[in-house]
């Protein structure tokens, strides 16, 4: 019964596969507190490390440098400076906005880390590193980082 079976094609076959996933991501107690302050009080909060005194925004439970639990919450004004940015001009599935749009890293006054977010109410060609920014909150807030609609230039 053994053959090389030349009558069956060796034509390469590509198998089309679609992987469906539906992951649920926990923000944990720390992330939940951060998001609820934004949702309920339009406040941006950070956590201060008892070891090195750095303020982390967004907050995390442990200081990455000292590996100690951070428990001291610090309220920030929300104002800050742009440390880096880019303008997205291409489209992919699952993008949160229609291109073109700009996002950047914002260092909040009183914080030692950067928060990534969208930039709005700004001419995409006139964004400058170091420019002053402030958050614009959505009317309807649901407990998400996107409850901050974007950061806009502030005077």
């Amino acid at each position: 019964m053994s053959h090389h079976l030349p009558e069956i094609s060796d034509e390469p076959v590509i198998a089309e596969v679609i992987a469906h996933t539906n992951f649920l991501v926990s923000t944990g107690a720390t992330g939940t507190r951060f998001l609820k302050e934004i949702r309920d009080n339009k406040k941006i909060m950070g956590l201060k490390c008892p070891g090195c005194s750095k303020v982390h925004v967004p907050p995390r439970l442990h200081c990455p440098t000292c590996f100690v639990k951070m428990t001291e919450w610090v309220e920030l004004s929300g104002k800050g400076s742009l440390t880096s940015y880019t303008v997205v001009r291409y489209q992919e599935p699952y993008m949160p906005k229609e291109p073109p749009y700009a996002y950047g890293v914002i260092q909040m006054d009183g914080a030692d880390t950067g928060l990534a977010h969208f930039l709005g109410e700004v001419d995409l060609d006139k964004i400058k590193i170091g420019m002053r920014l402030e958050p614009v909150f959505k009317e309807e807030r649901e407990g998400s980082i996107l409850d901050i609609d974007y950061f806009k230039p502030s005077s």
């Binding site: 034509e11 198998a15 996933t21 649920l24 926990s26």
Partner: peptide
Amino acid sequence: EFIQFRYPRQVPYQHSLGYQSKFANG
């Protein structure tokens, strides 16, 4: 009490069957 986010995604792949193509053709 704790906020969680759901991320439904559909990711398409094209897997080459290579030498095994003969099995599929069979």
